[in-house]
Simulated scan of single mutants.
Amino acid sequence: MAQLAAQSQGVEKYGPYGCQNGQPWSMMLEPCESLCELIIKTGAVVDSITFVTTKCRRKFGGNGGNAEHKVTLQCGEHVTNISGAIGEWHKNVDVTKLKIHTNLCKDGYGPYGGGPYTKYLYDFSSEVPSNGRVVGFFGTLENNYVQSIGLYVKKEC
């Protein structure tokens, strides 16, 4: 549903980064809705991501993770990019580290995740154009973990 809406609004996809054989998830901001906070629960990998917007709260992933990281966006702050690592943990390939980059924190918040016993496969970094604005996220879930993540980006005039 969000992908069809994205295409009709001139939104481009960046990613997903990671494996894509799990269950798809997607969240896209509605017009006049903004992202206020991201809550990332981690252990060795990214267990879940919760997006808190001006209208609702949407969680993707399981209930595990012994660490909770909150990225609270200031007034006028918005996500510009994501980066991190994909790795193998207990024979699953998941997002093992995640960093959130914004217009006010270009080096990014995080990385979150990256616990022990993880075999790192590769790093990723989205290449969102400077005139692009992140308007949503998508990816896949596998065994209650975030398996992949990508961005919906709308180019600004």
Rank of each mutant, 00 (worst) to 15 (best):
A2Q: 09
Q3P: 00
Q3S: 05
A5K: 10
A6W: 00
G10Q: 05
K13Y: 07
K13V: 06
G15A: 01
G18F: 04
C19F: 15
C19A: 09
N21V: 07
N21I: 03
P24N: 11
P24E: 14
P24L: 09
P24C: 11
M28K: 14
L29H: 00
E30C: 05
C32V: 11
E33F: 00
E33N: 02
S34M: 14
C36R: 13
E37M: 05
I39D: 09
I40E: 03
T42A: 07
G43N: 15
A44I: 09
V45N: 07
V45W: 09
V46H: 08
V46C: 06
D47A: 11
D47T: 11
V52K: 12
T53S: 10
T53Y: 03
T53N: 12
R57S: 10
R57K: 15
R58S: 15
K59Q: 07
F60R: 12
G61V: 12
N63L: 14
N63T: 13
G65R: 00
N66K: 12
A67R: 15
E68I: 11
V71T: 09
T72Q: 12
Q74I: 13
G76R: 04
H78E: 15
H78S: 15
V79Y: 01
T80A: 12
N81H: 03
I82K: 00
S83Q: 05
S83D: 06
I86P: 02
H90K: 05
H90V: 09
N92T: 12
D94R: 08
D94M: 06
V95T: 06
K97N: 02
L98S: 12
L98A: 10
K99P: 01
I100M: 00
N103L: 04
C105P: 11
K106Q: 10
K106L: 08
K106H: 11
D107A: 15
G108E: 08
Y109W: 08
G110Q: 15
Y112D: 01
G113P: 03
G113N: 01
G115N: 08
G115E: 02
P116G: 13
Y117M: 10
T118Y: 01
K119H: 04
Y120Q: 13
Y122C: 05
Y122S: 01
F124A: 02
S125K: 10
S126V: 08
V128P: 00
P129T: 02
N131Y: 04
G132R: 08
R133D: 07
R133E: 15
R133Q: 11
V134G: 06
F137I: 14
F138R: 01
F138V: 03
G139M: 13
T140L: 00
Y145P: 03
Y145D: 06
V146K: 06
S148D: 07
I149E: 03
G150Y: 00
G150A: 00
L151R: 01
E156M: 15
C157R: 13
